[in-house]
Amino acid sequence: MNSTGTDSPKSLANHFRVSGHAQDRIKLPGVFWAGLKAIGLSPTVVLRHSELPPTVYSGETFVTTPQNFAIWRSIRELSGDPTMGWKFMSQVETDQYHPTLLAALHARTYRESIERLARYKQLCSAEEFRFTPKGDEMLVEVSWPFAEGVQPPVLLIDAVFALVTELGRRGTKTKLTPKRIELTRPAERDNGLADYFGCPVKYRATRDALVLRTADLALPFATHNDELLQMLAPQFETQLQSGRIAPGTLAQVKWILKRLLSGSRPDLPMVAKELGMSDRTLQRRITDEGTTFRQLLNETRHELVRHYLGDPTVEITEAAFLVGYEDPTSFYRAFRAWEGTTPAEWRAAHLSRRAKRN
């Protein structure tokens, strides 16, 4: 991936296929349930209507692609509202985004953002994105390889296209609009698509596609955060290369802790809420992995503080605050337990080694 934001249109990978070893196991993240609540629907009611167990909401049960389709059909039937697809993604707050979406939001450009979305989506669900450059246009299409011949619900297609659009709008801080949308379905009254997307909508088309302007792909993201990307991207790339379907519980807990730690003291209930599961379920999963929440918090603080101290512009007291220590004495005691030395001595040695390598 070219990280400069100056790559040519044709450099965008064409088809992000799921691994040949992938299984049809979808873990619906907390952002999904937050989206349901944002549009006024109860997760429990939606699951009951879809004939799925409530353990899907607690995070204890995966769903298949056909079951995911059933959930989206239930959303439409329960709401009776054709606008629910795009509203679902447009009304979710950014701070509720799953770590894979945060990696896309904090990319350098719109082009890099949608590429990260396409790559990392494979870790959460069996979706395949295809990008097709045509002149001054880029066609974005999505498919579900485990659909078993079942057509995807129209609200799900709307939600995916809205997600791609929202990333562009929130990343660039502008009212970015696609060039047009092509849909295989017939037109439906009051679906709000033209108003929300701000572009023409072509119905009864030969494909379902979101058509972007190639020039828009080079737009820089005001939300770019290289520090966060360096924290998240290597883990996602490793999981993709190893063929894992989704990050394990411990990795998810650490991602959330890294997001919550700045100046606060996150506890297990806070993390469980972010993951969309009960305190008891999260505690059991952590125990099954042979560790404790306290140990995970300690490891996360250690990883983060090494990162902060490696940056000479970050004061030691600030680094302590950023990993949740308000008392300097407690921080120095913890750091000596981790590294066997003081933060200042560790930083000096680290920067000296870095200077010699360069």
Rank of each mutant, 00 (worst) to 15 (best):
G171H: 06
I71H: 05
F335I: 11
S74L: 04
M1S: 11
A349S: 07
H106W: 02
D195P: 04
P186F: 12
G20K: 06
M231G: 00
P200L: 08
E315Q: 14
L47I: 15
Y325M: 03
R73W: 05
Q230K: 10
H302C: 12
T281K: 03
G40T: 03
D190I: 05
K254H: 13
T64E: 05
E237D: 14
K27T: 15
F197R: 05
P186D: 09
L232D: 05
T317D: 03
L105E: 04
S113Y: 04
R265P: 03
P220Q: 00
V46C: 01
T132R: 15
A344V: 08
S42K: 09
L36H: 08
R244N: 14
E137W: 11
T329D: 14
K202S: 08
H106Y: 04
V305Y: 01
L217N: 01
G40R: 00
T6Y: 08
D190V: 08
L217Y: 01
L309G: 01
M84Q: 09
A233W: 13
P153Q: 02
L193M: 09
S90A: 08
D279G: 09
D24A: 02
D327Y: 00
T100G: 11
L257I: 08
P145A: 13
V160Y: 11
P99W: 11
R354P: 13
C124V: 15
E148K: 15
R116F: 07
A222L: 01
E318D: 10
R119S: 11
R353L: 07
P186M: 07
T281E: 00
V160K: 13
A251L: 10
G248N: 15
D195T: 14
R285L: 03
Q235R: 14
P53V: 04
E148L: 15
L260A: 09
F146V: 13
I71C: 05
N68Y: 14
S330E: 15
S278H: 14
G40W: 01
S352P: 07
W144C: 10
T214I: 12
V31M: 10
G20H: 03
Y57A: 11
T100F: 13
Y110M: 12
K134W: 05
E77H: 12
P266Y: 00
G149Q: 13
S19M: 15
Q230S: 11
E318W: 00
V201H: 03
F221Q: 03
D226H: 06
L322N: 00
S264K: 06
L156T: 08
N358D: 14
Y110T: 07
L117D: 10
N68A: 08
A272Y: 02
F32K: 00
F146W: 02
L229K: 02
E93R: 14
M1C: 06
E227H: 11
E127K: 13
S90M: 13
I39Q: 00
P153V: 01
L257G: 04
Y97F: 12
H49M: 06
L282A: 07
G263L: 02
A104V: 02
K254D: 05
T313N: 14
A337M: 12
F69T: 04
V46A: 04
K356Q: 09
K37A: 12
T94M: 06
R111P: 01
L240R: 09
N225D: 12
E112N: 11
